[in-house]
Nucleic acid binder design. Structure first.
Lengths: 139, 139
DNA sequence: CAGTATCCTATTAGATACTG
DNA sequence: CAGTATCTAATAGGATACTG
């Protein structure tokens, strides 16, 4: 049985949809549209992983941001957190069934980035040649 | 003919990939993983659109941010900007063929958010009930 | 119309230190 | 190990005014 969609916020009904600031779908899209979120979910697809392992694997993320992002995702029902009463304590993070349904899409996005990064880099070079120089750090 | 992938940055070759900070694919994923970027590309899929039209349609975006984001996307080769010498001047933005190959994935992400927003809202309620209250504004 | 420029504030992120 | 707390630095974002 499908839950009824919010009549005020469905692509099918009118143009008022994910483009509208107050549409819940838009808010969750905003949540997903975050580099750490995508990276974390993608990383967890291979199974339960411990906090510090995630931190090592996701290059550049800080403890603080990892911690915050995991907490948000847990709240959204996308990540499950399991605590093991070892000494010292260990904690494992894994995707919920809900998040598993999202993995394919995220992979598709990541693969697209991999497959097309050369094209985009060339485009950048062309643009910079045409319109004057932008420092590489602004890339 | 496929361009050869950067050997240091391919999922197929080693674990060093999109998770690595300096991998170009990761950098472009970071670029895509932005709410305005996704919204703009999705909005443009229906064809060339003028600046102020975009601004009206994408609820909440400011002139400044729209302008900045469009410029980045143009530089990345995802958006084409056409200027018409009317008086006053009008400008149309549209997706490049490269960006068109990305649209399906973005739609998939947006649809996922729409389809699962209820589940996520329930998860949030459950979480908040269990672990104490979070202001709704922090959602 | 389609922006740019400026100023100023708010949010994020980083570094460091500390705890059960 | 897996975090929290705190403080600071960087950056993004908003408001406003102005231009070809």
């Amino acid at each position: 049985m499908e839950t009824m969609r919010n009549a005020n916020c469905t692509k099918a009904t009118k143009n008022y949809s994910v483009y509208s600031r107050h549409c819940p779908a838009r808010q969750f899209l905003d949540r997903l549209a975050d580099k750490w979120t995508l990276l974390i979910i993608d990383r967890l697809k291979s199974g339960e992983t411990r906090f510090n392992q995630l931190r090592r694997d996701i290059d550049g993320i800080t403890q603080k941001v990892l911690s915050q992002t995991l907490k948000k995702l847990e709240r959204d029902g996308l990540i499950e957190r399991r605590v093991f009463a070892t000494m010292p304590v260990t904690v494992g993070y894994s995707l919920t069934p809900l998040a598993l349904t999202l993995v394919k899409t995220i992979e598709s996005l990541a693969h697209w980035a991999e497959d097309n990064m050369d094209a985009m880099r060339e485009a950048q070079t062309r643009y910079d040649t045409q319109y004057g120089l932008v420092k590489e750090t602004e890339l």
